[in-house]
């Protein structure tokens, strides 16, 4: 690990002041950042410790939604009674990720910003455009079993590893941030992430020193909620494909659908056209397959991840069958 200067922030304002200087990273849980620092994939010159900031509350919003402090550990968020009762898809996604120890440490804000698990990103002996811009992407013609099938570019085919963020995307989460100049802004999760294009090293729209302080959820959408994750082990493994789904059926027709996908894109994936195709339809495999056709119209495999294309279809259909129950 490269050495660094360390400072513990006692307020969000102090944190963003410290975070605005050069090559500085915030540390909250540290479960991803320190892992990457040990491998010298991340080499910050300064670390601002934000783990003691008073951002640990989960509160009901005036609109019937939820306001979650960015330092709330994943374990606490998953077990929070407001979340288990009203946003079970979020609890389920959190509980499907990592291990008990990691969930006790990893923060809500940090979970959004996890780096990819691409093998080549992790191997500093080989090129990687995300780690060393312009050096190349060995994953395209290499081992790419865990890589993305949607939203990839010539420069990067890495997938986003988070489970939590997939549920957050299905729930239309909004991130509240504080910038070094004192401005606050609200960023929809739909605008947070960037496609890799030819700058895969830039993963979000967050600016230097910009700190996530809260996550806001609107009132839960109408419908039943589920998170279905397919992975190589039954526990403690990243998703090959996952689906966060909220679906409502009324009078034999689908009236609401919110669907986000993990493991298949460089960001938690969501496409309005997939949901629109389901609204008004009679639940059943014909409608479900039509939705999957739209989702996967532009899907592209790279060899060892080709299986994700049929797997994403089957996982989507399975979760839609589950949520539409007898109506299907």
């Amino acid at each position: 690990m490269k050495t660094f200067d360390y400072s513990r922030a006692d307020s969000p304002e102090a944190a963003v002041q410290g975070g605005a200087v050069g090559n500085t990273r915030f540390i909250a849980g540290g479960t991803n950042l320190l892992d990457l620092m040990k491998l010298q994939i991340e080499t910050p010159e300064r670390i601002v410790d934000i783990s003691r900031l008073d951002l640990n509350e989960v509160e009901e919003g005036e609109d019937g939604g939820l306001r979650i402090g960015a330092m709330v550990p994943n374990a606490d968020l998953a077990a929070n009674p407001l979340v288990t009762a009203r946003y079970p898809v979020l609890s389920r996604a959190l509980l499907a990720g990592a291990s008990g120890q990691l969930r006790n440490k990893a923060s809500t804000g940090g979970n959004f910003l996890q780096r990819t698990r691409c093998y080549y990103f992790y191997d500093t002996a080989v090129p990687c455009n995300k780690r060393e811009p312009g050096s190349g992407c060995p994953a395209k013609d290499g081992f790419n079993r865990i890589h993305a099938i949607l939203g990839t570019s010539d420069d990067c085919i890495a997938s986003h590893p988070s489970d939590m963020a997939v549920a957050m995307r299905a729930l239309d989460a909004v991130l509240v941030t504080l910038k070094p100049d004192g401005d606050r802004r609200r960023i929809s999760i739909h605008d947070l992430y960037r496609l890799p294009g030819d700058t895969p090293q830039i993963e979000t729209v967050l600016e230097a020193g910009e700190l996530i302080t809260h996550v806001e959820l609107p009132p839960p959408p109408v419908g039943k909620q589920s998170y279905r994750k397919v992975r190589d082990r039954a526990s403690y493994a990243f998703a090959l494909v996952s689906v966060a789904a909220i679906v409502a059926v009324d009078d034999g027709r689908i009236t609401n659908a919110s669907l986000a996908f993990g493991g298949i894109g460089p960001m938690p994936w969501r496409e309005d056209a997939v949901e629109k195709a389901l609204i008004g339809q009679v639940p059943g495999d014909a409608a479900f397959n039509a939705a999957a056709d739209i989702l996967l119209a532009d899907a592209k495999g790279f060899g060892s991840n080709d299986f994700k294309i049929p797997l994403a279809r089957r996982t989507l259909i399975a979760v839609l069958r589950e949520l539409t129950g007898d109506a299907a």
Binding site: D49, Q101, L102, N104, K105
Partner: peptide, 21 residues
């Protein structure tokens, strides 16, 4: 998980956190 310890009663991986914190 071989490094698991309890911090304020909660189990964590002691390898993935800085002593100074």
């Amino acid at each position: 998980g071989a490094c698991t310890v309890l911090v304020n009663g909660r189990r964590i991986n002691s390898c993935l956190t800085l002593a100074v914190m």
